[in-house]
Computed example of a mutant assay.
Amino acid sequence: MMRLLILVAMLTGLASPARAWWEYGHETVATIAMTSVQPETRRAIHRLLARSDLMETPTCPARTIEQASVWADCIKTLKDRYSYAFNWHYQNIDVCRPFDIKANCPDGNCVARQIERDVRMLKNRELPLRVRVEALLFLVHFMGDLHQPLHAGDRHDRGGNDMKADYGHVPNSNLHSIWDGLLAERAISTPVDGPKGILAEVPVAERPAMKQGTVEDWSRESWQVAHDAYAALLGDACAPVPANRPALDNAKVAALIPVLRRQVARGGLRLARLLDEALG
């Protein structure tokens, strides 16, 4: 029976990441953005999403902002059609060296530069409608990716995928999966009220300041949070990988929940700003 319980816990740990930040986090960022944009921007978004059929990806619908937020991950299942976009989801900038986005974004193939490119295309009303719809779908997703810290910084370990770790009672995970999955699920749903609850934690007077800055500024900020994520696990973000698998205990998890919730709020409010600038 004990072996069975451990196996169930392990399988739960493996399954959760695919449906936590991957869906839950992205959808929450998108919903916060949609409730924060100007009315005319919201109407423009609806008009573009109404033509998402132009993408010809029936297995990856994008008729709502929530569907749009995960479209860029869904199309990975289409393999060769979108294989060129794989590197656009992240920028693994070394958290143990000075921040340098240029050295980690060859030929614009990283999440920050693609966000900037998508905004430019979305603004350009002379581009074909299909191109602008695609730019919207990528933009909504990539702003979620940028604010998942392990998409913004790492220790040359594939965004923390190679940093083995335990999460509470769930063994045999890794740092990326924890932030993508178990921690994200717990943080976004703690307390209740979903996107509305996360947005309510940011005072209205503070929201304009949170929206300020450039995509590179936001990249540096998420990179710093990634540094702190390693520090929370190891004590020192740049310490050697320990012989024994490190763990995030309940106290560490409790301290990280507000950090992750704030990342989601930042992503949603900043996405709203970019959408207003492009479509308002």
Rank of each mutant, 00 (worst) to 15 (best):
K252Y: 00
V170D: 01
A226K: 07
Y90S: 12
A209E: 14
A231D: 11
P17Y: 10
S36P: 02
Y84M: 06
T35D: 14
R125P: 00
A50R: 12
N161T: 06
G168C: 06
V37R: 08
V111F: 00
A18L: 15
V170H: 03
K164H: 07
G153A: 07
W179C: 11
N161S: 03
P58E: 09
V170S: 03
N87Q: 09
L11Q: 12
M210V: 14
A33W: 01
R262S: 06
L269Q: 03
H156Q: 09
W21Q: 15
A184L: 07
G168L: 13
N87H: 03
A112M: 05
E221A: 15
M2D: 12
T77S: 15
W22D: 11
L256H: 13
V119C: 02
A205K: 13
L146Q: 11
A152D: 10
L127S: 09
V140T: 14
R273G: 08
L139M: 15
L146D: 02
S177K: 13
I75V: 15
D228T: 13
L248R: 04
M10K: 13
H141P: 00
D100I: 04
G213C: 10
I257C: 11
C105K: 06
A247V: 04
L11S: 08
F99T: 15
A265T: 03
G13A: 12
W71G: 04
A85W: 05
R3V: 07
E66M: 13
T64H: 02
A165R: 04
E221C: 03
L5H: 08
G280S: 09
M210A: 09
V95A: 07
H89N: 12
H141L: 04
L269S: 02
A9D: 01
G181Y: 08
R262E: 08
S52E: 11
H89L: 13
N161A: 04
Q263T: 09
